[in-house]
């Protein structure tokens, strides 16, 4: 009699995805959940141990800040999940769900950071990770400042840290450092040797506040600039502006409000992303929905996400 061994796997582990089939028979990539790309050193050590025991000769760092274990045999799924769990490391998601948020280092140690993107990424991961959208994937990114290393506008919702500067003229010593530091040209020195501020070119980077030797420039408000409807892939879209100076503690609620709209409006249209849904429904429809709950942060008007041509240079 043949010794038939039935493979047992806890299918609950697979619910949120994160186990991705590879080319080889029986082999899978296991994508780990690393919100904001921050990884504690003890956890990193444990992952290395698990990779060494169950995986191939290397791990892969995904483009969205996750560590992916390569060449995991599906028969080892339970053991991998259990051993990672000893370091409270969880598996990530794939498919039509809210994905793990990405974020830059934020403001704790990066001198450019204006907001705590790491805190935001952790909070959103905790509250919304894996939420089924019913339609397509849903990506969120947090950039700590307008330099925007995470390319926030290429996400379904992209957040960008911002401060609005205000000047105390009496404290100004006319040194000119702010005007010199202002890359977009929103500040020039006036005839009275004090800086003159123009709102339109200002991207709210806060460089004037950071360089000001006397504190004459300070923050009038701080929060996130929010762009919605971006994506990359075969048909890229750049997300457009829907909210400004959204307070950090309202981010999760804001995303949930957008998700609510997306779930409803994409119903019956198949596998469609948020950006394409906004293009079909019109930007005003989403803007009005958001204004109901976030009247003080929603912008007065905006346009739908914009198509980015990727085949530039090809003549057809």
């Amino acid at each position: 009699m043949a010794d038939v061994k039935q493979t047992k796997i806890d299918l609950n582990n697979l619910k949120a995805g994160g186990f991705i089939k590879e080319r080889g028979k029986d082999l899978f990539t296991v994508r780990l959940r690393v919100p904001g790309g921050r990884m504690s050193v003890p956890r990193l050590k444990k992952i290395a141990e698990v990779a060494d025991k169950f995986g191939g000769e290397f791990v892969h760092l995904s483009v969205r800040q996750s560590i992916e274990l390569i060449n995991i045999n599906f028969k080892d799924f339970d053991a991998v999940v259990e051993e990672l769990g000893e370091a409270t490391q969880k598996v990530a998601s794939c498919g039509a769900r809210v994905r793990v948020p990405v974020a830059c280092g934020g403001c704790e140690y990066n001198p450019n950071g204006l907001v705590d993107t790491q805190k935001s990424a952790l909070e959103v991961d905790e509250k919304l990770f894996g939420t089924p959208t019913g339609h397509h994937k849903f990506k969120v990114a947090f950039a700590g400042c307008p330099f925007d290393c995470p390319k926030s506008a290429t996400n379904d919702i992209g957040f960008q840290g911002a401060v609005y500067p205000t000047l105390d003229k009496d404290a100004c010593i006319s040194c000119g450092l702010c005007a010199k530091s202002c890359v977009p040209g929103a500040l020039v020195m006036g005839e009275d040797s004090k800086p003159v501020f123009s709102n339109d070119p200002c991207i709210w980077c806060g460089d004037c506040v950071k360089v000001c030797p006397t504190g004459a420039w300070s923050e009038a408000k701080r929060g996130y600039t929010v762009r919605i409807g971006g994506k990359w892939g075969r048909n890229p879209l750049v997300g457009t502006l829907f909210a400004t100076f959204l307070p950090e503690d309202r981010v999760a609620e804001f995303i949930a409000t957008v998700l609510e709209w997306y779930k409803e409006k994409a119903e019956g249209y198949g596998r469609v992303r948020l950006g394409d849904t906004i293009i079909r429904e019109g930007a005003k429809a989403l803007l009005d929905h958001l204004r109901g709950r976030f009247p003080e942060y929603t912008v007065a008007a905006t346009i739908a996400p914009q198509v980015i041509a990727t085949q530039v240079g090809i003549s057809r």
Partner: peptide, 9 residues
């Protein structure tokens, strides 16, 4: 642009 604000920090 960079050095003054780093020295201030």
């Amino acid at each position: 642009k960079n050095v003054p604000r780093s020295l201030k920090a």
